[in-house]
Nucleic acid binder design. Structure first.
Lengths: 223, 223
DNA sequence: GATTGCAAGAATGTCAGACAATCTGGTTGA
DNA sequence: TCAACCAGATTGTCTGACATTCTTGCAATC
């Protein structure tokens, strides 16, 4: 037996690393929406071979983070306001359900984690760090989704949030949006902590509607 | 039917063909759940090179139709009853919403398509052809989802249905399930045709609950 | 001057082959 | 019996190559 504490049963492969790096790059807004990605360039920048890169691109395509058109290659899709609206509507369905279920079944330990993530968001909101706000807000929701008792709900939600996170980054930059977002999230937290399913659903729905409205404003301004 | 106005048809690539063939093979139950897929064998059977095959496998992995464990390769996941339940619950969320929206906005032409697909399912139900039943039922739903006015809802739903279709195939084989399924689907169709949102939601919910129950029975018997 | 046509270059789609790392199953030795 | 070990099988990854398809700039034509 080796002395290494190798309890991780998932060795990280080049393809996984590549997917993660590219996903982070895309979510950070490193690439302009609509711009094309050149395989040879990415290979050089990431230090991987084309086959590995292409596998990673297929994974990202399935996540809808890139689009691959035959004979034209991968590109960053430009998210239209219609699509964004559609995503917000589906998120509403999922998140309201998840918040309600979560209120009924979250363990005490996870509730503390949820509180922690709320505090982290509070800090981020005060700091005016857009990326930190997006990340901590995503943490908050991922804890709720992870404790709704339905892993599929969580999986589907993750796929949607990834696509919309740079939207969230924009709407957070609106004056006061981060603060009101914080208040809404606190409502959700308190409803869940109280085990009040109806209140959790209501608070979650309210939060999402406001987020959607904020995103719309920032989109109209920024477009 | 209208002639193909789409002049920029994407050329079908080897990878797309491979994905389609494999998906069909998996949904047809050609591979045993839990069994591993050997890349070299698949390459020989499909007549494609390993890089192309591996790209296709990454796409299918993202669809959750296969699982790829590092250093062990792709395998057909064994869907547990818990996961199946979770999928049914999320499908309920999505399909109820879609049916309700569809009732309010489906164009007359699409409504005729929906009727056609219902008739096709009727034929399949009478024929005791399991695969045909699954396929025509999937058509019926895909028309509803395509006309709910939210492409994201459609996209998410497709990802779930793929995974559960072989479940559906099983539950259809229960005595009388196809017939009662037909009756429920006709309810949905008529509610939509009448433009009655509430009735469409109700009928859709009822159908899904029954389908879930049937799937549970067949799972307990077959396991 | 605007439009068309074409040719050179770039980028993708696909394949073949290779090799190391890892897993698997059976054999051997204690 | 059980553990160590070895050979084959399989995957992860890379290199290199070539045909096909897109892009772009330039020239020819009206």
């Amino acid at each position: 037996m080796s002395a290494d504490l190798n309890l991780r049963i998932s060795p990280r492969t080049v393809q996984q690393e590549t997917v993660d790096k590219l996903r982070l790059a895309i979510l950070s807004g490193l690439f302009q929406p609509g711009s094309r990605l050149i395989e040879s360039q990415l290979c050089a920048q990431l230090g991987v071979s084309r086959p590995s890169l292409r596998e990673a691109l297929r994974s990202l395509e399935a996540e809808r983070l890139i689009e691959i058109v035959p004979n034209r290659g991968p590109a960053i899709p430009a998210l239209s306001w219609e699509e964004a609206t559609a995503i917000y509507e589906v998120r509403e369905l999922l998140e309201v359900e998840a918040a309600g279920r979560c209120a009924l079944r979250i363990p005490a330990e996870q509730l503390r984690e949820l509180e922690k993530s709320l505090l982290a968001f509070e800090q981020a909101a005060a700091s005016h760090d857009g990326l930190a706000q997006v990340m901590t807000a995503a943490d908050f929701y991922s804890i709720i989704l992870a404790n709704c008792g339905n892993p599929i709900l969580e999986e589907v939600h993750r796929g949607l949030v990834a696509r919309i996170s740079f939207f969230r980054g924009r709407s957070m930059s609106l004056d006061g949006r981060a603060q009101s977002s914080l208040a809404e999230m606190r409502d959700i937290y308190e409803s869940i902590a109280a085990g009040d399913e109806k209140a959790a659903r209501k608070a979650s729905k309210k939060h999402l509607l406001k987020a959607k409205a904020a995103a719309k404003i920032s989109m109209e301004n920024g477009a």
